[in-house]
Design a protein around this nucleic acid. Structure first.
Length: 257
DNA sequence: GTTGAGCGTT
């Protein structure tokens, strides 16, 4: 009796789905089964997992057979500490088809052969694709650096209330860095685009891109050639060598792209 | 090895 979510949805008809949030990433359906089964008849338990890693996403869906039992479980298991973490049990607001449900009760998986989309809104913004979920997954933890924020900097304000545990933003020193990069990036870009393609600066020193890409490339060989007797004191040390190995060459591509 | 707002699979 532990094949929950492994054989797909067994029967979602006449079942009340409960959403369990705030569960640990190591909590499995087997761990929640005896916990929820004690308060009622659990039909199925499904824990969404990541497609890439396969780790739990931190929440599970418990489907009960009766609403009274589900309600009881919500009132009893809501706020219960599982695996050292307080879980949040509540009725699922959205069904497996991203359809709104009354109170965790799934009528019939929404048969669109009768209603189709007549009573619904003209535009259905349920869920685009897996991409949407993937984005949320990525930005779920520490991937909220600047990529997502930069894209939603004008809508992230009320896009989602993440002031629950994340507090305020970690840092705001992104605009400057981006501006600088943009400036440096536009300089050579425009030069190349405006000037002739064959007029490339053959001189490494006169390179119009003084970006801090990798000065070692243009200085290392130069200094080494001139200072034949002192071949870079840092390189002589194993530490220096390690630092050099740290950045072989592909560095400018980062800012260029 | 980490993380933490939220709504789901064959």
């Amino acid at each position: 009796m532990s094949h929950f979510g492994r054989s797909g949805p067994p029967d979602i008809t006449d079942t009340y789905s409960l959403l369990v949030l705030n569960i640990t990433f190591r909590t499995t359906a087997d761990d929640l089964f005896p916990l929820f089964d004690k308060y009622g008849k659990v039909v199925d338990i499904f824990i969404p997992r990541d497609r890439r890693t396969g780790d739990s996403r931190g929440f599970a869906f418990v489907r009960y057979k009766y609403a009274d039992e589900a309600q009881k479980a919500v009132e009893r298991l809501d706020g219960r500490v599982v695996d050292g973490r307080e879980i949040t049990v509540q009725f699922a607001k959205y069904g497996p088809n991203a359809e709104r449900i009354h109170k965790g009760r799934i009528s019939e998986s929404f048969p669109r052969s009768k209603h189709r989309s007549r009573s619904r809104s003209p535009r259905k913004r349920y869920r685009d694709d897996y991409r949407d979920r993937d984005h949320r997954r990525r930005s779920r933890s520490r991937s909220w650096d600047r990529y997502e924020r930069d894209r939603y900097r004008g809508r992230d304000r009320d896009y989602r209330r993440r002031s629950r545990s994340r507090s305020a933003s970690p840092d705001y020193s992104r605009g400057r860095g981006r501006s600088r990069y943009d400036d440096d990036r536009r300089s050579p870009s425009r030069s190349v685009g405006s000037a002739s393609p064959g007029q490339r600066s053959p001189s490494p020193r006169r390179s119009p891109s003084p970006r801090k890409a990798s000065p070692f490339r243009g200085e290392s060989p130069d200094r080494r050639s001139r200072d034949g007797r002192s071949p870079t004191p840092r390189s002589a040390s194993p530490l220096g060598r390690r630092a050099d190995s740290r950045s072989p060459s592909p560095r400018n591509s980062d800012v260029d792209d």
